[in-house]
Design a protein around this nucleic acid. Structure first.
Lengths: 204, 204
DNA sequence: CCCGCCATCAACCGATCGGTGGATGCTCCC
DNA sequence: GGGAGCATCCACCGATCGGTTGATGGCGGG
């Protein structure tokens, strides 16, 4: 019997998950949490075999909740159940130690199969998420310095280089240098594309 | 007895909705649709009193499905059940004639009450959506022409005015004119802010 | 100590951008 | 017919941008 804790902030979705799990003889729902904090508390108190976690919840996101649950109970498995999210969130959840990543859009049998595999010790990725990670790992990780990010944020607000220099109490040459460094890191040639690229990468 | 058709592309969410409606004595689920097209077909065939529609579905969105359902069956009520979406989508659904707008995050009793009110002839808005519409109506509506949008899209990709002119087979002066018109409509002074503002407004 | 990263700064130059003040022509609607 | 919106186009000019080629100093880690 796999003892499962379900955490999702939408009552309808929780109800749907619970109804699905109720159809499985080898799965027992031992608790429901409407947010990340409650999920962590219930995981510590009820000691589930597996926590089914939404990635985006109020107060404490799924990736942070994952880290806390695994810190408190290393033997509990965490499965992220997600609407297709950007790869930044998924990467963070991986780093936090989740063992499964399933899409809410998946057929019910696939979700149940995923839960059973994870409870049996495997790591399970929905195919589209696996593809996302494969594509992602072929790309070098991009990160901007704090100052580069700050300058780009002001660029996104429509400020000119002289205005940004005044805002940050530095010279225009400094602003330009930060921008050029950001362009290099992002592989772009102009401020506008730098902003849109940084947004795509979740850096802004 | 309120005869309801449920349309949502996520099996889990559909299951949750169906489970919730099963708890109500006066509501009967007469069908389920995984996408907008099927929802339209089933609405015509099964003749529900009320269709519960997700706003974002593959193939045919909720607003388009709403328009088609109401065109085929004007007496059927449409309730949009949505994760908090940008106001553009909600406005489109209003224009299509939906009678209710409820959030998936709402407590189950609130969703059932909303369904009963709509079935009784009322228009029902979740409070946060009502607030959104009130705030929205105080703002002038911004819209860009097709050409303005197209030019902005290319700007967002990092193209210069001369490059955009070559891409669109027009002169650079034409590109600049479109950009200046877009700046006026968006209330901005530079291309970068025009792009980020258009994205915020859901125009890009 | 050396290296890498970060923050800061300069001057010069060509390309691009934004603004200005026009213009024509087409379509749709009152 | 007239007005509004849209698409297209022009020349000129000052401001800004992006690139180049440097430079200094601080901090942390091997």
């Amino acid at each position: 019997m796999i003892r499962v804790l379900v955490a999702d902030d939408h009552p309808i979705v929780r109800g749907g998950i619970v109804a699905l799990l109720a159809t499985a003889d080898d799965v027992e729902v031992i608790g429901e949490a409407p947010d990340g904090l409650t999920a962590v508390e219930l995981a510590e108190r009820l000691e589930p075999d597996l926590v089914l976690l939404d990635l985006r919840m109020p107060g404490l996101d799924g990736d942070e909740a994952t880290a806390r649950i695994l810190s408190a109970r290393p033997s509990t498995k965490v499965v992220i159940l997600t609407t297709y999210e950007s790869d930044t969130s998924i990467l963070t959840a991986i780093e936090a130690g989740a063992s499964g990543y399933l899409l809410k859009a998946a057929p019910p049998e696939e979700i149940l199969a995923g839960i059973r595999s994870v409870a049996g010790g495997e790591v399970v990725l929905a195919p589209s998420i696996a593809a996302l990670l494969v594509g992602r790992s072929a790309r070098p990780t991009v990160s901007l310095s704090a100052r580069e990010t700050e300058v780009l944020r002001l660029v996104a607000q429509g400020q000119s280089n002289p205005a940004i220099a005044a805002t940050l109490f530095v010279s225009e040459a400094t602003v330009k240098t930060h921008l050029l460094h950001a362009f290099e890191k992002l592989g772009v040639n102009d401020r506008t594309r730098a902003v849109t690229k940084a947004m795509e990468l979740g850096l802004l």
